[in-house]
Amino acid sequence: MEQSQSDSSQPRSESSLSRSESSLSRRDALAALSALGMSATAGCGARAPQGGSDDEGGKENKRRMEVESTVQTYVAVAEVVYPTTLSGIETFVRSFIAARLDREERGTAMRDAVTELQTVADEWYDSSFESLAPETRDSLLRELGVDEADEDPDGTVSARVRFYVVNELLLALYSSPTGGELVGIENPQGHPGGTDTYQRGPSR
């Protein structure tokens, strides 16, 4: 995960909304879980490997390694599709993506989409996706047509990566308080932030 610290790079000068750094918190992770229909206790089975040996549970360990690889790819994509002013991306993504991957049908489709993305990285760049520089990850996604694809769970690989990977991450971010605050809405759609915020004026 050598690229995992790239989430706190320089803000873009042309966007006044992104001039100050924002940090994703546990509250955001819980919000994402809620917006995505998951509970905070779900997803234990998809957490990173805790050790063990092939002798003791090789099959389970292999599965966990695969899950960890998938999670790392999600983190690597998030570092590309999230604003550069955000920090705490890896912790945030790990907090909700595990639960999402645990679901029977949808989780399988998510893992399949990531596998396809990893395969493309391997074939085109002879590298794992997460080992690529952020600019290269960005260009790979664009070369694959993910930026222009309409999300579609049953569509082309571009449409499926858009649905299961990129938009999965964007939905989680922009339905969280910190993601909403980036554009001036602390209670974005999908977040049950209570009936106070709509009454408030803008913060000056």
Binding site: R12, S15, V81, P83, D138, L170, Y174, V183, G184, I185
Partner: peptide, 30 residues
């Protein structure tokens, strides 16, 4: 109370991401 686009819906339907997306959301929402 819901005039104009919602940021989360905008985010899922554009051709951009990262800082470009954030810039667009800032221009289109608010």
């Amino acid at each position: 109370n819901y005039a104009g686009p919602s940021p989360v819906e905008l985010a899922l339907s554009g051709d951009d991401w990262g800082d470009d997306l954030l810039g667009r959301l800032g221009e289109e929402y608010g």
